[in-house]
């Protein structure tokens, strides 16, 4: 089947097998290997990307289902060499060790903040429940998400993916 998908700002038209998973299309066809596969039962969330502005586990979406959609991966978050505030917060708060869950964790955190711009600790923990990390015990991830919330402008939906103007990312942009 022929699909047209915009991934991280570039449009691709490809013939794909109907059964191909979005994550495999991203990794194998487009070389977007920043998005990874951690399980085969949709439990771990390592493959989380944004499909039209909302987080999805790309192992549970077929590539053909993304036809006509926009996909944002971890590789498409930084703008003009500047990290997204959530990426920056993960670094600043030592919210990663091996880093394998990190792309999915960051993508899910952004989605969580889009829904709830100022989550308390419990809200962050529940919002990340579908993303497993084996290294950090989650404490610094929770801290990072809450720190990012304080540096991002409030907003809903896909806007959360945009890097806010410099005045709104004090401490989040270019450290």
């Amino acid at each position: 089947m022929r699909i047209t998908v915009t991934v991280d700002g570039t449009t691709f038209t490809d013939d794909v097998e109907p059964r191909q998973l979005l994550v495999h299309y991203l990794r194998e066809r487009l070389g977007k290997v920043g998005t990874v596969v951690g399980c085969d039962t949709s439990n771990c969330g390592a493959c989380t990307v944004h499909l039209d502005g909302h987080s999805v586990k790309s192992c549970s979406v077929l590539a053909v289902q993304a036809d006509g959609s926009e996909v944002t991966t971890i590789e498409g978050l930084a703008r003009d060499g500047r990290l997204h505030p959530v990426q920056q917060a993960f670094h600043d708060n030592h919210a990663l060790q091996c880093g394998f869950c990190t792309p999915g964790m960051i993508m899910q955190s952004i989605d969580l903040l889009a829904d709830n711009p100022d989550p308390d600790e419990q809200a962050v923990r529940e919002g990340l429940e579908g993303n497993l990390c084996r290294c950090t015990g989650y404490q610094n991830i929770v801290r990072a998400v809450r720190a990012a919330a304080s540096t991002m402008s409030g907003g809903a939906g896909p806007e959360a993916e945009q890097v806010a103007p410099a005045s709104n990312v004090a401490g989040g942009g270019d450290r």
Binding site: T35, D92, T102
Partner: peptide, 18 residues
């Protein structure tokens, strides 16, 4: 803060399966 993070938070990784 860790040197390792820059690549890992940007998806610029070299996992074997990549």
């Amino acid at each position: 803060l860790r040197k390792e993070d820059a690549r890992l938070i940007a998806g610029r990784t070299r996992w074997t399966d990549n």
